[in-house]
Amino acid sequence: MRTAYVAALAGSVLALSLSSAQDAPEIAWLTDLASAREQARGAKKPLLVVFR
């Protein structure tokens, strides 16, 4: 089972599609940076932060 990321979008919501076969399917798109960081800490998952 693939390890997923917790993700945060700092700034506006991003319409980013990772729909290829290489997709990491469990990525949870959030908009709150602090919340994402806490979730990542609790789940011991890496954090993807996107600024745009």
């Binding site: 990542a40 800490r41 890496p46 954090l47 932060v49 996107v50 600024f51 745009r52």
Partner: peptide, 15 residues
């Protein structure tokens, strides 16, 4: 990161 960018992603640890 390079703040001049219009898109930047960081892969991080929660720490």
């Amino acid at each position: 990161f390079d703040y001049d960018l219009t898109f930047a992603a960081l892969v991080m640890n929660a720490d």
